[in-house]
Every structure is written in C-alpha cells, then in structure tokens.
Amino acid sequence: MNDQGQGITVVSLLLAGLLLYGGAGWLLDSWLGTRLFTPFGLILGSALSIYVIVKKMGGVKS
C-alpha cells in the first residue's frame, strides 16, 4: 500500500469508528434520556479505530 492509500485508510477508519460507535451512543442517549453514552461511544470508537490502525500500519519492522 502506498502513502496515499495509507492516509485514506486511516481517515476513513477513524471516521467510521467515531460515526458508528458515537452514533450508537447518541441513539442510546436519545432513547434512554441520558447523557452518558455519547462520550463513551466516541471514546470506544476512537480506541477501536486506533487499534485497527495499529494492526494495519504497525506491522512495519525496520
């Protein structure tokens, strides 16, 4: 994978993780009337995205 491909992968993974889990948390919040799940979902989403990015990009051993 070349540089552009890596950049696109990173950005789209981050957006996907935050949209998916942050969105799920927001839906839970508006359903239950709480304010807790949105930040929780955002943090979970970014953590999972960074985990996948480390799995994909961190394999470069010098």
């Binding site: 789209s12 993974l13 957006l15 996907a16 949209l19 889990y21 996948v52």
Partner: peptide
C-alpha cells in the same frame, strides 16, 4: 463483533461518502 462493523462502515460507507 466490534471490528467487523467498523471495517464494513469504513470500506463501504465512509470511503465513497468522503
């Protein structure tokens, strides 16, 4: 179960939208 939806959204939804 957490990673598969994430990668699916990343490759099939956010890519064309971005």
């Amino acid at each position: 179960i957490l990673i598969i939806p994430l990668e699916f959204i990343s490759n099939f939804v956010t890519r064309p939208i971005t």
